[in-house]
C-alpha cells in the first residue's frame, strides 16, 4: 500500500521534536479528522531555515509527509520553502495512495503556517 520511502520516513522519521526558541511555529489539521501537524522553524538573519522540527498526530503517511517536508525545507530560504508543494512532497516519497494525498497537503500547509507565524512575529518586532 505504501512505498518503501513512505515506510522508511514513517518508521524512522527525520527531525522529530520541538524547537524551544523557534522563530516560527505552525499547527494545522484537526484531531477529529485524525491528523495534526505542528512544525517548528529556526530562521537566521538571511532568512535561511537553519533548523526544523515537527510533531505529528496521524497515520503513517501523515508522519512520513511531515518528515519529508522538513528535509526538503531545511537549509532553504523562507521564500524557497514557501514554494514547496504537496505534490513535490508526495513525489519525493515515491507517491502516496490517492486517499492519503490530503496528508501531503497538510505538510505543505504546516510549512506555510510556520512561515506565516515567523513573518507575523517579525512584523510585530518592527
Amino acid at each position: 500500500m505504501y512505498s518503501d520511502k513512505v515506510m522508511d520516513h514513517f518508521e524512522h522519521p527525520r527531525n522529530v521534536g520541538v524547537i524551544e526558541d523557534a522563530d516560527g511555529v505552525g499547527t494545522v489539521g484537526n484531531p477529529v479528522c485524525g491528523d495534526v501537524m505542528k512544525m517548528y522553524l529556526k530562521i537566521d538573519d538571511n532568512e535561511v531555515i537553519t533548523d526544523v522540527k515537527f510533531k505529528t498526530f496521524g497515520c503513517a503517511s501523515a508522519i512520513a509527509t511531515s518528515s519529508m517536508a522538513t528535509e526538503m525545507i531545511k537549509g532553504k530560504t523562507v521564500d524557497e520553502a514557501l514554494e514547496l508543494t504537496n505534490k513535490a512532497v508526495a513525489e519525493a516519497l515515491d507517491g502516496l495512495p490517492p486517499v492519503k494525498m490530503h496528508c501531503s497537503v497538510l505538510a505543505e500547509e504546516a510549512v506555510k503556517a510556520a512561515i506565516e507565524d515567523y513573518r507575523d512575529k517579525k512584523l510585530k518586532e518592527n
Binding site: 522519521p13 522529530v16 520541538v18 484531531p31 495534526v36 510533531k55 505529528t56 498526530f57 508522519i63
Partner: peptide, 8 residues
C-alpha cells in the same frame, strides 16, 4: 506519543 503534538 513522543511524536504527537496532542500528547505534548
Amino acid at each position: 506519543r513522543a511524536m504527537s503534538p496532542l500528547y505534548e
